[in-house]
């Protein structure tokens, strides 16, 4: 029972921060609400026996990535955007479609008896960094290497995109 209360409490915060992020006008506030949301999800990860992923979530996502976001928002002065839009039906239709997506998904999940199963046993050492590290270098060595290449591509891509082509002087 206590478990359930904690879940609903955290879920409420997660949904509230997500909604706030979408609704608030100021981009800086949006980013901060997203950070909150990411932290709440990290707490869920801890509850679900995934301390390593929770740490990565906090460090990489809530930490580095969102700082980058905030930095760019500040740099561009893009807290608010002006200008009218010609898309009159966009927001109501998008809202309706989003509601339909959520409603449909919930309906399907409720029809899934397998999903109602109690938590399986995840032996404690499985979620810890050592086990994950071992897996990363055996079964998941290929995705691991691919990810490193992806990071490299992103890095070079950023350099290419950010370099001011007008002042290259080639």
């Amino acid at each position: 029972m206590g478990e359930l209360i904690v879940f609903y409490l955290l879920a409420g915060i997660a949904i509230a921060t997500a909604l706030a992020m979408v609704i608030t006008r100021n981009a800086v506030h949006s980013a901060l609400f997203l950070v909150l949301n990411l932290v709440v999800v990290a707490v869920f990860y801890l509850l679900l026996g995934a301390p390593f992923v929770a740490m990565v979530q906090i460090a990489v996502y809530a930490g580095a990535v969102m700082v980058l976001f905030l930095f760019v928002i500040m740099m561009l002065g893009a807290e608010r955007v002006g200008g009218a839009t010609g898309l009159r039906w966009q927001a109501p239709l998008a809202g309706a479609m989003g509601a339909a997506l959520i409603g449909g998904a919930l309906f399907a999940f409720l029809q899934t008896p397998a999903g109602l199963a109690p938590a399986g046993s995840l032996p404690a050492p499985l979620g810890d960094p050592a086990t994950i590290g071992e897996r990363l270098l055996t079964t998941y060595v290929l995705p691991f290497e691919i990810t490193s290449i992806l990071l490299l591509i992103a890095m070079v891509g950023v350099v290419v995109l950010a370099r001011d082509s007008r002042s290259e002087g080639k």
């Binding site: 010609g86 898309l87 966009q90 998008a94 479609m97 989003g98 339909a100 997506l101 449909g104 399907a108």
Partner: peptide, 22 residues
């Protein structure tokens, strides 16, 4: 030409697919 509208089309397609499944 509006990105958001293109995205909406994607979402509508997704919802249609989902309801077909349901």
């Amino acid at each position: 030409g509006y990105v958001r509208q293109y995205g909406l089309s994607v979402l509508i397609g997704a919802v249609l697919l989902m309801f077909y499944i349901l």
